[in-house]
Design a protein around this nucleic acid. Structure first.
Length: 585
RNA sequence: GGUCCCGUAGAUCAGUUUGGAGUGAUCGCCACCCUGUCAAGGUGGAGGCCGCGGGUUCAAAUCCCGUCGGGACCGCCA
């Protein structure tokens, strides 16, 4: 692309032997200078395209990060001085004029890409950090992903609609960020956790296929994969089934993966929520590696061993674990499992017993020979392996072994390729809440599975059996996003509210505008949303979404660059009708 | 709300386990030298509230308590 301007003819990183003889002007930052006395200096000038060696005859006060404009003739480097490691390493510029556009203090951290720098220092001076190739690559890849998503959605007939940032607070879900109203003191707007309700209104409004690359805000604790504010591809379509949604989203995601990695993923496999819980111990399976949870409950039916008298027993096998795990590490794993809620972690080594595998150490002495043999066979264990068993409630076994599997086997973020998977058939209700009412696993507008309507109508215990038409997209163990077929029928919606213990009045006050809209001809509709920060981070091999966000916040929710959040002055508070309580000590 | 890890020069780290003389190294920075370097090289120099506060001790970067900041995770994130 031609990026020339009135100030420059070329970009530093784009010059090569084809340009030899041309008089060019480049602008950029001084990456490094190498001075050889009064009559020779090498200045590496950097812009976002790369670095160019500029040769100056005479001394100039050009220091690190000075902004300079240099004009000169491109020439081949003298024989034996070509730098193979540099894109522009075959040429250099014989500088005729140098203009210092801006001076710089020495940067607060090395611009050198080899040394890691404490993140708080990078964030405090993010404007400098952004000059480095890592952030340039990450942000430019992110931009490419956004534009690829837009093309994919528009190709499929989706219309970009912008929904408001200042909305009414809806009490469901995450904690809202709120904004005080000046014109109505004592009242507040909420910032959207997602455009969920608006996109459904768009369906009632005949938009047919809506999408938006939307900013969403949730006031919950931050993590490596969570910020207060994040971007989602948000989409919704009318007269569609779950299958149609899979088509739309898979197509967009495949385009993105292809444009970033060069490889187009095949058809994205599916796993039911139940299988995922049983085999991987969570609802966001990392499919890059095996070490699946193996059902061992039948082996221990009627066992004498007290530790294995439990509702559920599962195990995992760590290949070569005898070699790779020290006794201290094993003890630490046991402690981890207890912290995760298990009563304990049973482990055993698989030894070679005259050519056949045999369990020893750990809890092996509590097992009968038949039990031991069955465990080995079920887990496919071989001598040298380490096996881990957890006995507890089914839920706890899944949870603990699922986490143990990840801590033992999870590959680094940039290893193991990109394994997308659809998780389908989530339960409609997660569990019973403290008030005895079921808790929705998704949101209360999720359509029950058509095959489970009998259970749904029956109520009571049968409700646990009801699946929903909701689905998640998972990549390498990260939840990228989720979606569902929505309820568009008043009778089903009323029934849901009734089951959730939400009365007519409450429903009206919380979601009245949506329920009202549904009275006026709501098409069947379904949708999805996936997180762009997460997708980008994984595709560029970053284990932290802060690395793909220009100006992120720290884990405590602060911005070290602008010092947000900060107090308001008295006048502002007055105008908003707010008073701040003294901090409790 | 909880668990764990980290905090020493502008940067990256050692030193902390087992308290003991003056906290070192590398990079960067400043000055000078140097005409083919590219992580240039050479000589010299500056630069430290060992995060902060308290305690133990004859003596604390080191041990203890608290606190602040950063990170990973659990809870939370319909």
């Amino acid at each position: 692309m031609d990026l020339s301007t009135s100030m420059r003819t070329d970009m530093c990183g784009q010059l090569g032997t084809a340009d030899v003889g041309r008089t060019i002007t480049v602008c950029g930052w001084v990456d490094r200078r190498r001075e050889h006395g009064e009559h020779l200096a090498f200045i590496d000038l950097r812009d976002h395209t790369g670095v160019l060696q500029c040769v100056i005859d005479g001394s100039r006060d050009l220091r690190s990060e000075y902004v300079a404009r240099m004009t000169g003739v491109v020439r081949p480097r003298p024989e034996g001085t070509v730098n193979e490691d540099l894109g522009t390493g075959a040429v250099e510029v014989d500088v005729e004029t140098v203009e210092i556009l801006s001076k710089s203090e020495p940067p607060p951290f090395p611009m050198d890409e080899r040394t890691g720098v404490d993140e708080i220092i990078r964030l405090r001076h993010r404007y400098i950090d952004l000059r480095k190739s890592r952030m340039q690559r990450n942000l430019r890849t992110r931009a490419l992903i956004n534009s690829t998503i837009r093309k994919a959605m528009e190709r499929q007939g989706f219309v970009e609609i912008e929904t408001p940032m200042l909305i009414a607070s809806t009490p469901e879900g995450a904690r809202d960020f709120v904004v005080p109203s000046r014109k109505e003191p004592g009242s507040f707007y909420a910032l959207p956790q997602s455009p969920q309700l608006f996109k459904q209104l768009c369906m009632v409004g005949g938009i047919d296929r809506y999408y938006q690359i939307a900013r969403c805000l949730r006031d919950e604790d931050l993590r490596a994969d969570r910020q207060f504010e994040f971007m989602q591809l948000d989409a919704e379509a009318s007269f569609v089934s779950q299958e149609d949604v899979f088509e739309f989203i898979s197509s967009a995601v495949a385009d993105v993966a292809e444009v970033v990695t060069g490889d187009r993923p095949g058809v994205i496999p599916r796993i039911t929520w139940n299988d995922s819980m049983e085999r991987f111990g969570n609802d966001k399976p990392d499919m890059r590696f095996g070490m699946e949870l193996v059902e061992l409950t039948p082996i221990f039916e009627g066992t004498e061993a007290r530790v294995f008298q439990a509702e559920c027993i599962k195990g995992i096998c760590l290949k070569g674990g005898v070699e790779s795990l020290s006794r201290n590490q094993v003890d630490a794993l046991v402690e981890d499992c207890k912290r995760w809620g298990a009563k304990g972690l049973a482990w055993m080594r698989v030894a070679d017993d005259d050519g056949s595998a045999k369990l020893e150490a750990g809890v092996a002495k509590f097992l009968t020979e038949a039990e031991g043999t069955s465990v080995i066979q079920s887990l496919g264990a071989a001598p040298g392996d380490m096996v881990f068993l957890v006995a507890d409630t089914r839920r706890m076994v899944q949870r603990v072994l699922g986490m143990l599997r990840l801590s033992l086997g999870r590959p680094a973020v940039d290893e193991g390729g990109f394994k997308f998977v659809w998780v389908v058939d989530f339960p409609l209700f997660e569990a019973l809440g403290d008030d005895g009412n079921p808790i929705p696993a998704h949101h209360p507008f999720t359509m029950p599975h058509p095959d489970d309507m009998d259970h749904f109508n029956a109520g009571g215990e049968a409700l646990h059996e009801v699946r929903s038409q909701s689905y998640d997209l998972v990549l390498n163990g990260w939840e990228l996003g989720s979606g569902s077929v929505r309820i568009h029928r008043n009778d089903i919606q009323s029934r849901i509210f009734e089951l959730l213990g939400i009365g007519k009045e409450e429903a009206q006050s919380k979601f009245g505008f949506l329920l009202d809209a549904f009275k006026y001809g709501a098409p069947p509709h379904a949708g999805f949303a996936f997180g762009i920060d997460r997708l980008t981070a994984l595709l560029v091999g970053e284990e932290n979404i802060r690395e793909v966000i220009a100006f992120p916040k720290t884990q405590s929710g602060a911005d070290p660059l602008t010092n947000a959040p900060g107090p308001l002055d008295a006048t502002q508070l007055e105008e908003l009708g707010l008073r701040v309580l003294p901090q409790a000590t």
